[in-house]
Nucleic acid binder design. Structure first.
Length: 308
DNA sequence: ACCCAGGGTTGGC
DNA sequence: GCCAACCCTGGG
C-alpha cells in the first residue's frame, strides 16, 4: 500500500481551525480519531474506496498534513471529505461576526478559537452514537462505540496496525440484544433503542436521502419517531450527521447556560430553550451551542451553575 | 461496601 | 406537562 501526502493550508478555508481542540471537544457524532504520536488516524469511506487517513497539525491555523494509503491518487476526494468533516468548507467568519455583534456572546470567541464542528462521516454511526450518548458519560460512551467498532466493524491493516470502522446497518442489526451481545459493550438499556432504530432505518427506502433533502422541521419530526431519540439527540443527529446548522441541541448544560445568559436564571423547559436558540441564532445556532458549552467548561461557568 | 451522577428518553399518571 | 425509572460504569 502506497503512502501519499498533501497539505491543506490555512488560506484554503475561511476563519480559524485548530485540529487538536476540535478533536478533543467532546462532540459525540463519533469518537475522536485514533491518536498515534501526533497524528490522528481514521478509516474514511470514499465513493469507491476505504482509505486510512492520518492528519496532523502543530497548532492553530498551521498547515494540515494529510497522509493516506492507496494505490491511486485520491487527493481530491480525501480533501473534500476532510473539508466536510471539519466544516472547513463553511465560512465560519460569519459566526465570528455574529458573536461580536451580540453583547452577551462577546467573550465566548476567545475560548473557542479554532474550534469547528466535527461532523460524522456516516449518518448511521452518528444516529447510533447519539442514542448511546443519552444519559451517559462521555468516557463510557467513547469506550462503548470504540468496542463496537472493534468487534463488528470492517477493518484495514496498515503498517501492522488495525483500524476499524463502525459496522454497517445490516451487520449491526444482527448483534444480539443480550448480556454477551450488544450489552457487553456497556451500553445498558440503550441496546434495545439502538437495535430498534436500526430496524426502522432499514425498513424505509432511502432513509438518509429523505432526511437530507427535508427541511429542518420535517427532519426533526422524523427523528423523533426513532426509538431512543428525543429532542436533544434529534438535534445532535441533525447537526452532526446531516449538517443542519439551525439545530440547537439542549442538554442539561446548554439549558443551564442559556438560562443564565438569556432567561435571568429562571427555570425553563428544554423545548423552549431549543426554540429560543433556533430563532435567536438561526444558521449559527449549532455553532453557538458548541461554543457556549465549551466556553462554560473552560471559563468556570460550569462549576458556578452546578451549585444552583 | 455504599452512594451518586452521567451532554436524556420513555411511559404512566 | 410532570415525574420516576431505565442500565451500569467510573469516581467519591
Amino acid at each position: 500500500m502506497q503512502q501519499k501526502q498533501f497539505i491543506i493550508d490555512s488560506n484554503e478555508y475561511m476563519g480559524d481551525f485548530d485540529l487538536n481542540i476540535t478533536m478533543n471537544s467532546g462532540q459525540t457524532s463519533q469518537p475522536p480519531w485514533v491518536k498515534e504520536d501526533n497524528r490522528y488516524c481514521e478509516l474514511i469511506t470514499l465513493s469507491e474506496d476505504k482509505v486510512l487517513v492520518e492528519i496532523s497539525q502543530e497548532g492553530l491555523n498551521d498547515e494540515l498534513i494529510v497522509n493516506y494509503y492507496s494505490e491511486e491518487n485520491l487527493d481530491e476526494e480525501v480533501r473534500q471529505k476532510l473539508f466536510y468533516i471539519f466544516d472547513l468548507d463553511y465560512d465560519i467568519t460569519k459566526v465570528y461576526d455574529y458573536i461580536k455583534s451580540e453583547d452577551k456572546l462577546k467573550d465566548i470567541y476567545n475560548f473557542n478559537t479554532g474550534l469547528r464542528l466535527y461532523k460524522a462521516q456516516s449518518p448511521f454511526e452518528c444516529i447510533i452514537s447519539s442514542i448511546c450518548s443519552a444519559n451517559n458519560s462521555i468516557k463510557r460512551w467513547t469506550k462503548s462505540i470504540s468496542m463496537i467498532r472493534k468487534a463488528y466493524g470492517d477493518s484495514i491493516s496498515v503498517n501492522g496496525r488495525k483500524y476499524y470502522q463502525f459496522p454497517l446497518e445490516d451487520v449491526f442489526i444482527k448483534i444480539p440484544d443480550t448480556e454477551d451481545g450488544l450489552k457487553s459493550f456497556g451500553v445498558g438499556y440503550r441496546s434495545t433503542h439502538m437495535l430498534d432504530t436500526t430496524e426502522m432505518i432499514l425498513s424505509e427506502e432511502n432513509y438518509y436521502e429523505k432526511i437530507k433533502s427535508s427541511s429542518y422541521e420535517d427532519a426533526f419530526r422524523k427523528m423523533l419517531e426513532l426509538r431512543g431519540v428525543g429532542s436533544k439527540v434529534a438535534d445532535c443527529i441533525l447537526l452532526y450527521g446531516f449538517n443542519k446548522r439551525v439545530a440547537y441541541p439542549v442538554d442539561v448544560w446548554i439549558n443551564r447556560i442559556t438560562n443564565y445568559m438569556y432567561f435571568n436564571g429562571q427555570k425553563t423547559g428544554n423545548d423552549k430553550i431549543m426554540k429560543f436558540g433556533q430563532e435567536k441564532f438561526g444558521e449559527y445556532a449549532g455553532y453557538i451551542q458548541l461554543y457556549l458549552f465549551n466556553y462554560a467548561r473552560l471559563s468556570g461557568l460550569t462549576e458556578k451553575l452546578k451549585k444552583q
